[in-house]
């Protein structure tokens, strides 16, 4: 016993150091895991609140650019609306069954109050949380394309795992074809992501558009991602293609969060015994 007390007396600083290092290591490993990152994140009341104050001031400086982006998005949406009108005009009769509940997705607007893009595991913080209806595993996009997936929410803030995170994987496909692959990021350049596991027979050309595939319960299909700039760098197993993002991830402001009303139903159908 005497020996033990003497041992603790002698190495108390080292033992304290090891204890704290151990705590830090647990936090690091938990943060790398999508399902376990609970404790240390910027979606808490203190850091979220401070970031919110900070962004209230800093957003004034790029209001002009944000306005321009919103105008461009409105232009695209108006164009799509007009196309629809045109099609309806030529249809002899269109029946819209208004008694059925057909809406599958709903959109919630939010603002990015903290943005990271220079590390290997990047996260963003949004100024809305559980109280505004945001939940884990909801998609985050803006007018130009995908941003990421919500991985943690507090009452008034949410943390988003950016597509610029080495753990991110999302289903993507070539526009106007059904060949699909997995979109990942290798952690090097923040404007370039990699589309992997796409079949070799898929006709890919430099300049082709990549969009979300809709084979997950998170993203609806057809949301833009980027264009192919480089294919088959080396003849690797994963057949990776470089995709340049439409979004400049270092400069993003207002975003939309997508809620899928059918998520529970699809999940229940896909793994029935997993309860």
């Amino acid at each position: 016993m005497q020996q033990l007390i003497y041992f603790f007396q002698r190495f108390k600083y080292f033992l304290f150091f090891l204890l704290l290092q151990f705590i830090a290591l647990i936090l690091i490993f938990n943060n790398l895991n999508f399902h376990k990152s609970k404790f240390v994140n910027s979606a808490n009341a203190l850091s979220g609140g401070l970031y919110n104050q900070y962004s209230n001031i800093s957003t004034y400086f790029n209001l002009q650019e944000v306005n321009k982006a919103l105008l461009e998005e409105n232009r695209l949406l108006r164009k799509q609306l007009d196309q629809n009108k045109y099609f309806n005009f030529f249809d002899d009769s269109t029946m819209v069954d208004s008694t059925k509940y057909l809406q599958k997705f709903t959109y919630i607007s939010a603002k990015i109050i903290n943005n990271n893009y220079a590390r290997a595991f990047n996260f963003l913080t949004l100024n809305k949380g559980k109280n505004q209806g945001l939940e884990k595993e909801m998609a985050v996009i803006n007018g130009k394309g995908v941003i990421g997936i919500i991985d943690n929410t507090s009452n008034n803030y949410a943390r988003v795992q950016s597509i610029l995170n080495r753990n991110s994987k999302l289903n993507a496909r070539l526009k106007n074809s059904t060949y699909f692959g997995t979109l990942k990021w290798d952690g090097e350049d923040y404007s370039i992501v990699q589309l992997t596991d796409i079949p070799r027979q898929a006709p890919i050309k430099v300049g082709d558009t990549i969009e979300t595939g809709g084979k997950s319960t998170i993203f609806p299909e057809g949301i833009l991602i980027g264009t192919v700039i480089n294919k088959n760098k080396q003849d690797a197993v994963d057949n990776a293609i470089d995709v340049k993002l439409f979004n400049d991830m270092s400069n993003v402001g207002p975003v939309y969060v997508i809620k899928n009303f059918h998520k529970e139903e699809i999940k229940l159908l896909e793994n029935p015994e997993n309860e």
Binding site: A24, V40, S42, T125
Partner: peptide, 14 residues
């Protein structure tokens, strides 16, 4: 906490 990095700053400064 602010930079969403788990515990890497804590580990390295310690």
């Amino acid at each position: 906490f602010f930079s969403d990095s788990g515990g890497i700053h804590a580990f390295s400064i310690l």
